[in-house]
């Protein structure tokens, strides 16, 4: 489903060159739930961003859903992300000015979907995460766990083949973290969604199919 070959990411400023990822090659199969661990600054999020086509590697090739991505234009990249990928962020990144339902609808705004269809799909996604009673609330009226569930609903509303989660339980207590993890495992098992999750939490990582460890930008496991 995701194939990374010899990925390298270098950040350059006028004087300093930092190697964030060094020669990473990774294959993730369809329906796999993979976790990435490593100390802060080891390049986990950078790797996830590269997989999510939010950032470009300095070297190497990426193939996602049997498509090479390096020559895609801004418009094609946007369309590709919209169709194939869903994102969950540690700090939720919900739009506080919009109601929960509008937040969940967001990915569908960039598709040819009617308003009624969008409402329908967004309601279904919220139902899946157990928040159908909070549709008209604003994000600021919800708890951290509820917000992350809204973010998951937003990530799955477009039925993407891949979900990329950057420390989805990082801001939550263990009970809420477990709850979120249950939802992700459920998604992976029931819908065969491929999930790549960056985490600091060994317990959470143990629940996934495979664990990849990074250290100073290199893969150590």
């Amino acid at each position: 489903m995701i194939s990374l070959k010899n990925i390298e990411k270098v950040y350059r400023t006028t004087n300093i060159e930092t190697l964030a990822l060094n020669n990473i090659s990774l294959n993730i199969a369809k329906g796999e739930f993979l976790s990435i661990m490593g100390p802060s600054g080891c390049g986990k999020s950078t790797l996830l961003n590269i997989m999510g086509l939010l950032d470009a590697p300095s070297k190497g090739q990426i193939e996602i859903a049997e498509q090479t991505t390096e020559k895609l234009s801004d418009k094609q990249l946007a369309r590709f992300r919209n169709q194939k990928l869903g994102f969950i962020f540690q700090s939720y990144h919900l739009i506080n000015d919009l109601q929960v339902l509008d937040n969940v609808e967001l990915p569908l705004l960039y598709r040819d979907a009617s308003a009624r269809e969008r409402r329908q799909l967004a309601s279904e996604a919220l139902e899946k995460v157990g928040l159908s009673n909070r549709m008209k609330h604003f994000p600021t009226q919800l708890s951290g766990g509820q917000r992350q569930r809204v973010a998951i609903a937003r990530a799955i509303v477009g039925k993407p083949e891949i979900i990329l989660a950057d420390e989805p339980t990082g801001n939550l207590d263990s009970a809420m973290g477990n709850e979120i993890m249950e939802i992700l495992i459920n998604l992976n098992q029931k819908d065969s969604t491929t999930i790549v999750m960056v985490t600091h939490d060994e317990n959470m990582a143990q629940k996934t199919h495979r664990l990849v460890r990074l250290f100073d930008g290199s893969q150590v496991l």
Partner: peptide, 8 residues
């Protein structure tokens, strides 16, 4: 967020 979810 909008860009991540498909806005060009």
């Amino acid at each position: 967020v909008r860009k991540a979810f498909g806005a060009s």
